[in-house]
Design a protein around this nucleic acid. Structure first.
Lengths: 231, 231
DNA sequence: ACCTGAACACCGTTCAAGT
DNA sequence: ACCTGAACACCGTTCAAGT
């Protein structure tokens, strides 16, 4: 959540540019040329300054990227009309997040395998498609079902790998920036407004252990069950 | 699929090291110190040579990473005993891929949000958890259900973004390496053995258009349906 | 055919100094 | 308090030359 700029002391040299300007310029660069082209040096020149001046406004590039993500979420996420039925509510809410993320693919612009991670995996793909067909799906629906399974699987891996990496980095004494980030969720959960977000507030203390559990297979079974229900 | 090294012409200076040695050394570096520490310079010194000698064995670093992934898949994916029931077969096959990928998280060692992409998203998380509880799940199961939805969603985004990026790069005339990679799947699908992989062989021609379709919502509905079935 | 050394065109970040 | 210039310790890759 972007803090409204802290109460500025009036002493000392006045800033030539603000953190907001830095983030806005960074956003423009990313929108125009992609996240790869966002370098501290280019950002500095586009903001009319030198690389090191940026480090007075952001701790490092990692923090800049987090600010950029937050900025994007704040300006993109729109609360949709909620259907009365809870099941539809789930769909609508998830689809809204999905839509927002889809609008800024640079977040995950990285090496992740497409549907085919390697020829060695084809046999496994065959088993999945075949199983779905044997369960009564058309071949077309079976391919789509496989894709869903792959999405779910890839997502689980990415999320877990990232979480693990952060934990490892947080344990690293020198990496203070990471330690700050690791506690970010804790701070947010501690400040939850029980009136606005009652479910999350009630479960806040259990969130970390619950999400640390390995529930990949549960979710996978649910997804497959769901795919097999004729609709 | 790694070609067995092409028939070597006996003329000319004999190689000091092989492509296999390069990949094996790269694998060791990645296993020991993570993918970030794999640089062409370090790889060169560990292989007892100079950076530029590597470029005689691999086109560039991107190709090296692909070789590494292929190498990993070839040595990690083991075909499990298949249960008779097709639904269980799906689970087992997918879990096997999952297990293989989980063993090399460096593949996706990148910036991807954990479960909390931003404080702005909390409201959406609340809607999902609340909807699941209203549908009869315990709060604990609801949190796990939300995680499943998040995994699926993050995976869809990552996979689609990567595919889109590759398509964009392939259109770039200068980026021949990417163009080669874009046709990799086509070559594999053209060579499918209908006896070994009958489903895939039969659907090969439709694979590209089918997987280009946006089926995010279908899969999401299936996953949610499945999560709501009491098991 | 295979390998080398030097160089190019970059990075993020630190340090010491300036206003 | 805020900004600068120079430098450090790197990158991946190209080029021209050597054996």
């Amino acid at each position: 959540m972007p803090q409204p700029s802290a109460p500025r002391k009036t002493r000392g040299r006045p800033p030539r540019f603000s953190r907001e300007e830095v983030v806005a310029t960074a956003r423009r660069i990313v929108d125009e040329d992609g996240v790869d082209r966002l370098t501290m040096r280019r950002l500095a020149t586009e903001v009319g300054s030198t690389p090191m001046a940026l480090y007075h406004h952001v701790r490092n590039k990692e923090e800049l990227l987090l600010l950029l993500l937050d900025d994007h979420a704040a300006r993109t996420l729109r609360r949709p009309e909620l259907p009365a039925h809870p099941r539809e509510r789930i769909i609508v809410a998830a689809a809204a997040i999905h839509e927002a993320l889809a609008a800024c693919p640079w977040i995950v612009e990285v090496l992740t395998a497409d549907d085919l991670m390697s020829a060695s995996a084809l046999w496994f793909v065959e088993q999945i498609v075949d199983g779905l067909v044997e369960c009564g799906l058309t071949p077309e629906r079976a391919v789509h079902g496989y894709r869903a399974v792959w999405y779910y699987t890839a997502g689980e891996i990415v999320v877990r790998a990232t979480a693990a990496r952060r934990r490892a980095d947080a344990d690293d004494a020198d990496a203070d920036a990471y330690a700050d980030r690791a506690t970010y969720r804790e701070r947010v959960f501690a400040d939850l407004d029980p009136d606005e977000l009652p479910r999350l507030a009630r479960i806040a203390d259990d969130w970390a252990p619950l999400t640390a559990e390995d529930t990949y297979l549960d979710g996978l079974r649910a997804l497959v069950d769901g795919l097999l229900v004729s609709r």
